[in-house]
């Protein structure tokens, strides 16, 4: 060990931990993985994920990526299921408020870094924004081939026949591709990638997106990326083209018709209402005077 290298610590006020929790050596390791991930779009870069003070499966990969890129002038937004006020989103936002002291926002347009679980915001993202996804299982082929040694070879050979067979079997059995979320995509014409468990509704937003998209899987120790303006194609067949979900009614609160909706059970007599999953989008629309049937 080189005793000349000092442990660099800038404690965040009041926490006793380094800025954004991670030590600088860990940040550098993650940053190097991010740069390689950007250079090889869609390829899963192994990284030495640390044990974080929140459980594996609860966003440790996204948290490590966010901690590695975050600077003092960033404005952070954290969403879970599209909402800023779900408990885990609140918990992660508080973690960064406490350890990094960065400004936070619920407004998509104001954020420079957005950490998300399961959704891509409805408002178009812009250059200068970074979307950080929490990823549970980064390997798109995992449920077809459980062995890492095998899937690594399949990616090396760009051998994605298994995935097409699986999707085709869906069509044969159900008449549809029965994958509704974590729908596999091909990135920049080479790697097949898991977009994380976002609904396939969000897949088109990944294509040619002006923002940088980073994916962190802590338990599985993988980081991958989609640079801005990159071709992201949802796998499909000529006779069964990719389609997103559609809802047969608009948001009951803001009237938006081109968004992903949460279904809310109102009573035990079959009463239902559908509202925007993206809470910021819904609030922004309502502030702009849009209304739905229940507003």
């Amino acid at each position: 060990m080189n005793s000349q290298v000092q442990i660099q610590v800038t404690p965040s006020p009041g926490t006793g931990y380094n800025f954004a929790y991670l030590d600088e050596g860990t940040k550098r390791m993650i940053r190097r993985a991010i740069l390689k991930a950007i250079a090889i779009p869609g390829y899963q870069v192994p990284f030495a994920a640390r044990e974080m003070p929140m459980p594996y499966g609860w966003g440790t990969g996204g948290v490590q990526v966010t901690a590695a890129i975050l600077g003092a002038s960033d404005v952070l937004k954290v969403i879970d299921q599209g909402a800023d006020d779900t408990t885990n989103a609140v918990s992660i936002r508080r973690f960064f408020t406490a350890t990094a002291g960065v400004a936070t926002t619920t407004r998509t347009a104001e954020a420079t870094v957005i950490q998300t679980r399961h959704r891509i915001p409805e408002a178009p993202l812009a250059e200068g924004q970074v979307l950080v996804y929490q990823v549970p299982i980064p390997e798109p082929l995992r449920f077809l081939e459980p062995r890492e040694t095998e899937t690594r070879q399949l990616h090396a050979l760009a051998e994605y026949g298994l995935m097409h067979v699986k999707l085709y079997e869906d069509i044969a059995r159900h008449g549809h591709i029965a994958t509704t979320y974590a729908y596999p995509v091909e990135v920049a014409g080479r790697y097949v990638m898991d977009p994380s468990p976002t609904p396939k509704f969000d897949n088109p937003k990944m294509d040619d997106c002006p923002a940088l998209q980073l994916f962190g899987a802590g338990r599985e120790k993988r980081i991958y990326a989609i640079p801005p303006y990159t071709r992201v194609r949802s796998l499909d067949f000529e006779d069964h083209p990719f389609r997103v979900q559609s809802f047969d009614r608009p948001c009951a609160l803001c009237g938006a018709g081109d968004v992903y909706l949460d279904e809310v059970v109102l009573d035990d007599a079959g009463g239902r209402m559908f509202v925007c999953s993206d809470t910021d989008h819904c609030e922004t629309r309502r502030a702009d005077g849009h209304t739905g049937e229940a507003a």
Partner: peptide, 8 residues
Amino acid sequence: DPVHDGQA
């Protein structure tokens, strides 16, 4: 400032 200069 190793933390913030490095980050920038």
